[in-house]
Computed example of a mutant assay.
Amino acid sequence: MTTVPRSLDEIIASADALADRFEAYEPADADRDSVDPTTALWLAASRRAAAERDLAAAVVEARRAGVPWKVVGELVGTSGEAARQRYGRHAAR
């Protein structure tokens, strides 16, 4: 069982030891390719959310530059009206 460091010197020594372990760690080939399914799902959802934020920001910039909703819709794979409904609140800011 690991004991919790109590003094500042113990905390610093523990942090240094952990830093050394992290720097020396080399994952096995199997570790690199295996991801827990829930972690994979969380990562995919996180990437999707980031992509949606990027897309909304790009729509805002396109609208500020005068790109019509019809063109925005075509570029995001939908109709201009559907794009306006989905991203219009972002573009109105």
Rank of each mutant, 00 (worst) to 15 (best):
residue 65 A to W: 01
residue 46 S to C: 11
residue 18 L to N: 12
residue 26 E to C: 10
residue 77 G to S: 05
residue 24 A to W: 11
residue 42 W to Q: 07
residue 85 Q to M: 05
residue 39 T to Q: 13
residue 8 L to S: 13
residue 73 G to E: 06
residue 92 A to M: 07
residue 46 S to D: 15
residue 47 R to A: 15
residue 21 R to Y: 01
residue 48 R to P: 02
residue 47 R to N: 11
residue 85 Q to W: 06
residue 8 L to I: 12
residue 17 A to W: 09
residue 31 D to P: 10
residue 54 D to I: 05
residue 56 A to Q: 03
residue 85 Q to F: 03
residue 58 A to H: 08
residue 76 V to T: 09
residue 39 T to N: 06
residue 83 A to M: 02
residue 51 A to G: 01
residue 53 R to K: 13
residue 45 A to T: 08
residue 33 D to I: 11
residue 20 D to G: 14
residue 38 T to D: 14
residue 2 T to N: 13
residue 79 S to D: 00
residue 76 V to S: 05
residue 75 L to K: 04
residue 80 G to K: 00
residue 37 P to Y: 07
residue 43 L to Y: 09
residue 77 G to D: 03
residue 61 E to L: 12
residue 32 R to I: 11
residue 52 E to T: 00
residue 52 E to C: 00
residue 24 A to Q: 15
residue 61 E to T: 10
residue 79 S to V: 00
residue 42 W to K: 13
residue 60 V to L: 08
residue 17 A to H: 14
residue 50 A to S: 13
residue 84 R to T: 01
residue 33 D to L: 11
residue 51 A to P: 01
residue 63 R to P: 06
residue 45 A to R: 14
residue 15 A to P: 01
residue 72 V to D: 06
residue 32 R to C: 10
residue 35 V to E: 13
residue 48 R to C: 05
residue 24 A to F: 08
residue 5 P to N: 03
residue 65 A to V: 02
residue 9 D to H: 13
residue 74 E to C: 00
residue 75 L to W: 05
residue 47 R to I: 04
residue 63 R to A: 05
residue 55 L to N: 03
residue 33 D to F: 11
residue 70 K to E: 07
residue 90 H to Y: 10
residue 69 W to C: 01
residue 10 E to L: 04
residue 47 R to Q: 14
residue 24 A to H: 13
residue 24 A to I: 06
residue 51 A to K: 09
residue 36 D to R: 14
residue 60 V to C: 07
residue 69 W to G: 04
residue 75 L to S: 06
residue 71 V to H: 03
residue 50 A to T: 14
residue 88 G to V: 07
residue 80 G to P: 00
residue 92 A to P: 01
residue 55 L to Q: 11
residue 53 R to W: 03
residue 32 R to K: 15
residue 86 R to K: 13
residue 21 R to T: 08
residue 65 A to D: 15
residue 68 P to K: 03
residue 43 L to I: 09
residue 16 D to G: 15
residue 74 E to V: 03
residue 23 E to H: 13
residue 87 Y to W: 13
residue 40 A to H: 08
residue 36 D to Y: 09
residue 14 S to K: 10
residue 54 D to A: 11
residue 60 V to D: 04
residue 17 A to P: 08
residue 6 R to T: 10
residue 89 R to I: 00
residue 71 V to Q: 06
